[in-house]
Each structure stands twice: as C-alpha cells, then as structure tokens.
Amino acid sequence: MNPPSPERQKTENALIAAVQLVSGPRVADNLAAAAHGVAEAAAQGARIVALPEYFPIMGMAEGDKVKVREVDGHGPIQEFLAATAKQHGIWLIGGSIPLEAKDAAKVMNSTVVYDPAGQRVARYDKIHLFGFQKGLERYDEAASIEAGSEPVAFDTPYGRIGLSICYDLRFPELYRRLAPVDLIVVPAAFTETTGRAHWEILLRARAIENQCYVLAVGQGGKHENGRETHGNSMIVDPWGTIVDRKLKGPGVVLGLLDHGCIAETRANLPALKHRVL
C-alpha cells in the first residue's frame, strides 16, 4: 500500500458521485450506460466518480467474465475508463473489471483508477471472495476469481482514498489497514438478500469507525441473468449520516466530500487517536 504523500494538502473539498447501474451480459451496452452516468455526474460538478462492481459485465454464466478479461493495462474496458476520465477531467474509479489471473480459468476482480489526464494511478484486486448459500441461492466467487492480497490507498488533491470491493465491507480489519483516509470507496454487486439485511449497517459502521466519508456504489436491480442486486448506492459522512442515496435502477448519487466535517468529527471524538490495538 502506498504511504500518504508528505506533500499532500487536504484542503480541497469536492463533489463525489456514485453511478448506479443494472449491467447486463453485453460489454458495449454496459460501457454506453456507464458513459451516460459518468457524464451526468460530471455535468453536476463531480470531481470523483465511482462505478459499480462488474460494471462492464454481469454475464449469463460465471465464465462469461473470463471470456472478456483483459491484460493489465490494455483492452477496451481500460481504454474506455482512461478516455472517459480525460474527457471529463475527473478522477474515475472504475468499479471492478475482470483482469487476467495466474489461473487461466479465473480472473482478478480489480478496481482501476484514472486521474483527470487519463493516467492510471491505482489498482486494487479484491481480497475477500464472497461465498453464500441459502436455499437455492448460492454464490462461490472463489470458483472463478483469484483473490488479491494487498490493501490499496492513493492520494488526490481532494484527500486520500482507500479502495475495497463488495464483500470486503464485512472485514473491518482491511479498513484499519487503510486508515487514516478521507474517503472509502465500495463498488459492489450485493445480493438483494444480504444487502437488505446488512448493506446500510455495514457502510455506516465503516464510516463511523474510520471517521471518513464512504462512497458506496452498487449494481441495483434485476439483471438479465436472473440475479437481483440490492443497489441502495449512497454517500455516508464521518458521523454516519447518509448524505444521498439511490435505491434501485440506474442513477447518480451526489454529495460533498467536506474536510471541515472530517476534521470536526475527529476533533470532537478523537477515536482514531485512542486506538490501542
């Protein structure tokens, strides 16, 4: 994980945005939908924009993402993200995309981040792989995804940003490794079953315990493959208050990353300074 830059000045507030989607099995269609959502967010003044997990593809079968996986640094999905960031002059957090893994039958589920010049500045590979079974509903990400191992945070003029993906949200020790950060980003494709029960609670907890903003961006609705994702994309402030949210369907969530709010919260309740373990 990159250490905080000593030259960084956390003085600039910024509008941040989550672009909620309901992706399908066709990459070109999903990129078009993402382009529309990012353009809408940028037009409203967002400087940091995040897309959901699996934004380029929610396939009809688990192997579909393997078929469209890209070599790190090359491919139409990564070229789209770089060009879109440059076009709008924004920091673009590319949800997650399938990249090549050591195992030819699997992918890395990776967040890639681009600066306003279209240069890639960070990559995070999802560490925790989702497994769930309840009745006929069953998921086993380890069957098609290779786990990452390294936490990732990076600096921007608007503060330090920590990366995570979906199921990572259930593991607070990851965020303790990232702390202190100003913003945690959580692209996700939470199931409706688990999301209805736990999504909001976990997001607010991560914001409260790390005294930072959380930008959570989900897939949100019924997909062509029959899966239903929870959506409920939201921005949570350091006190745990939900600033904005989108329950279902495509749309944009927008809010201010306010360093005054972060500073006040940490001054009033200096929990990060009180850490012992």
Rank of each mutant, 00 (worst) to 15 (best):
W199N: 09
A216C: 08
F55I: 02
I242E: 09
A267M: 11
Q9H: 14
K102P: 00
R275C: 14
I57W: 03
R176I: 07
P56Q: 07
A34P: 00
S5Y: 05
T241Q: 14
R204H: 11
E137M: 15
G89K: 07
A271V: 14
V276Q: 11
P56W: 04
G63D: 14
L272E: 10
V121L: 01
F171L: 09
H223Y: 07
S144R: 11
P6Y: 04
M58D: 09
V217F: 02
K222M: 15
L247Q: 13
G95N: 04
L21S: 04
G255W: 09
L183M: 10
V243I: 14
A197L: 14
A271E: 12
V113C: 04
A263F: 03
R177M: 10
I165D: 01
A188H: 15
K65H: 12
G162Y: 02
A271N: 15
F130R: 13
M1S: 12
K102M: 09
F190P: 03
R120N: 02
A82W: 01
G135M: 04
G89Y: 04
A216D: 06
C261V: 14
I16E: 04
I77V: 14
S23W: 00
L163N: 00
E100K: 07
R204V: 12
I262N: 06
A43P: 02
G221P: 02
E146H: 01
V27T: 10
V152N: 00
L202E: 15
V186K: 04
V68H: 05
F154D: 00
P56G: 06
A267D: 11
P4W: 08
A39W: 04
E228N: 11
S233W: 06
E192T: 10
R138G: 08
V152D: 00
L136Q: 10
